[in-house]
């Protein structure tokens, strides 16, 4: 590899690192890491939820396990993703408004929430395996579906958290707005996950997966189109 190519790579990397998008995501992750109490607070929340489920139900059968997993994901999403807009004061948004385009800002927040949510689903998967048993037959497929689920949940709740923040409301409003909207998403996700749990024949699995991906794309596109209206005062 020639020296010119190497320096070329360096320049590309430097441009990327300086771009607004990357620095916004990095800023959020940095804040998250510095205020460790919120991050570990959510982790503790996941842990105690799973423990409460275990205390009440013991080790459930595969179908209940699946339902409980997605229900836990829902509540974790409400608690962790809510912070993406609600944790920052309104004045700081005016400052961001002068710096970046609205779409960049929203997408950065969505990526940050997705990263957080992926971490949380992996943590809850580990806790589930320890406390509630391990009914999975295709682990990698289930992990893949829970990753897609993390993207779906964090995309929807990031946008709703923006709405709740602009309406000067708390996370409760976000839950009220979000639950009816994500219930069908959760139903699709848990139906998809059945394939990873029991080796049953499921007609139309791929079309269902396609519907989920299309819905995710729809949420992101709608968010990018509508967010500028939400942001301007």
């Amino acid at each position: 590899m020639g020296l010119a190519t190497l320096s070329g790579y360096r320049i590309t990397f430097a441009v990327l690192a300086q771009s607004n998008f990357i620095s916004l995501v990095r800023k959020d992750l940095l804040i998250e890491w510095r205020q460790k109490h919120t991050l570990f607070g959510v982790l503790l929340y996941v842990g105690s939820t799973v423990f409460v489920v275990y205390m009440m139900n013991g080790q459930p059968d595969a179908k209940v396990w699946n339902a409980l997993f997605w229900l836990t994901q829902l509540f974790v999403a409400v608690n962790s993703v809510a912070k993406s807009f609600l944790q920052e004061p309104a004045n700081r948004f005016r400052y961001y408004y002068t710096l970046v385009r609205p779409a960049t800002f929203l997408l950065a927040k969505m990526v940050y929430s997705t990263l957080l949510m992926v971490l949380m689903s992996l943590a809850s998967l580990v806790l589930f395996s320890v406390l509630l048993g391990w009914p999975l037959v295709q682990t990698s497929l289930f992990v893949l579906i829970s990753m897609v689920g993390s993207i779906s949940l964090s995309a929807v709740f990031t946008f709703l958290s923006a709405i709740a923040a602009r309406a000067n409301q708390n996370a409760a409003l976000m839950a009220i707005l979000g639950f009816p909207l994500v219930t069908p998403l959760l139903m699709i996700l848990s139906n998809l996950a059945v394939k990873a749990i029991a080796p049953v024949y499921q007609p139309g699995w791929w079309s269902l997966a396609l519907v989920l991906l299309l819905l995710d794309a729809l949420v992101i596109v709608l968010g990018v189109v509508l967010f500028p209206f939400l942001w301007q005062e």
């Binding site: 929807v156 709405i163 707005l177 009816p180 709608l222 209206f229 939400l230």
Partner: peptide, 21 residues
């Protein structure tokens, strides 16, 4: 403004789902 944004977002998400579910 905020309710218009939510109205569009909710309509675009929930109405197709009623036909998919």
């Amino acid at each position: 403004k905020i309710s218009a944004v939510y109205n569009i977002f909710a309509f675009a998400l929930i109405i197709p789902l009623i036909y998919i579910m």
